[in-house]
Computed example of a mutant assay.
Amino acid sequence: MTVRMDTADWAGLFHALGPASDTPRHLEALLGDDPKAFVDGYTHLWSTTIRRDSRVWPATAPTALLVSRFLDDASLWPDDPSMPDAMLAYLYKVGVAADLGDRAAEIRAQVAGRVSDLRDWTAVHLSADADGRARMWEDGTGLGGLVLDQAAVACFDVVPEILARVLPHLASGRTRRRTCAAVAVGAPARHPSASAQRPALVEQLASLSRAADSPYDVATVVIAIGQLGGDTRGWLGHPHPGVRGCAALAPGLAGDETAAQVLRELARSPGAFTESFGDMAPPLQFQSGPYQDLLAQGFFRPG
Rank of each mutant, 00 (worst) to 15 (best):
R135M: 12
G101C: 04
D213S: 13
G142F: 12
P270Q: 08
Q261R: 15
A134Q: 15
A8Q: 07
H169T: 00
G32P: 03
C180K: 12
L205Y: 01
D33T: 15
H238T: 03
R198K: 08
S127Q: 15
A296C: 05
P58N: 05
D117C: 06
R198Q: 04
S276T: 13
A86P: 00
D80E: 13
L201K: 01
G41V: 08
G145W: 04
A187I: 00
L27T: 11
Q197P: 01
T43P: 00
F300N: 10
V185P: 01
W77R: 08
T220C: 03
T232C: 13
G101T: 05
S209Y: 02
H240Y: 07
V243M: 10
Q150D: 13
P58L: 05
A109W: 05
P270L: 03
A128E: 14
V3S: 13
P270C: 06
F273A: 00
D231R: 03
D149W: 11
D9V: 04
G32M: 07
A267T: 11
L228F: 08
G252M: 09
Q204P: 03
R264E: 12
G144Q: 02
D213N: 13
P283D: 06
Q150N: 11
G230C: 07
E275H: 15
D80K: 06
G271K: 08
W57A: 01
R108A: 13
H15E: 12
A123E: 09
H125Y: 15
G101H: 04
G145A: 04
S75R: 15
V218M: 07
T258V: 14
